Simulated scan of single mutants.
Amino acid sequence: MMNVMGIGGFRAVIKYDPEIEMFRGEFTDLNGGADFYAGDIEALKREGAQSLKVFLDMCEEDGVEPRKSYSGKFNVRVSTTLHEEIARAAAAEGKSLNQWVAEVLDQAAHR
């Protein structure tokens, strides 16, 4: 997946901030905020590892689960026209709307 860096078993989304001319990493699967900055990839890896360590140490100290949990459910609002088109596409493939959407999202998330 583009712009995602694995650090210590966790994943961070990486973006470049042209205003400060640095890369910014933000962990997405933590049960709280932890971000880090650096001017190059090697430094970004080091800063990410340090940021993660601080976060994990704090979680351990407070008795908090560090990894974010997901229920597997979320609501998506779309236009009535798109809803109709999605339902038609799902029916054409002999799938439920939920099954069709889950497969499309899975494909998009793993590009």
Rank of each mutant, 00 (worst) to 15 (best):
D62C: 00
G63Y: 13
G63R: 14
G63L: 15
V64Y: 01
E65D: 02
P66M: 08
P66C: 12
P66N: 10
R67T: 07
R67Q: 07
R67Y: 12
K68S: 01
S69Q: 05
Y70M: 14
Y70W: 12
Y70H: 15
Y70L: 15
S71N: 00
S71D: 00
G72D: 00
K73V: 12
F74Q: 08
F74S: 10
F74R: 09
N75H: 03
N75S: 06
N75W: 01
N75R: 00
V76G: 02
V76T: 03
V76Y: 04
V78I: 07
V78L: 05
V78R: 01
V78P: 08
T81D: 11
T81M: 08
L82D: 03
L82F: 03
E84F: 08
E84S: 13
E85C: 15
I86G: 05
I86W: 07
I86D: 14
A87T: 10
A87I: 00
A89D: 15
A89N: 14
A90G: 12
A91S: 08
A91E: 04
A91N: 06
A92R: 08
A92F: 11
A92C: 04
A92Q: 06
E93P: 01
E93I: 01
E93V: 02
G94K: 03
G94Q: 05
G94N: 00
G94V: 03
K95G: 01
S96A: 00
L97Y: 14
L97N: 13
L97P: 12
N98L: 05
Q99M: 01
V101N: 07
V101R: 05
A102I: 14
E103N: 06
E103P: 05
V104A: 15
V104R: 15
V104S: 10
L105D: 00
L105R: 04
D106L: 08
D106N: 07
Q107K: 08
Q107V: 06
A108R: 12
A108F: 11
A108N: 07
A108D: 09
A108H: 14
H110K: 11
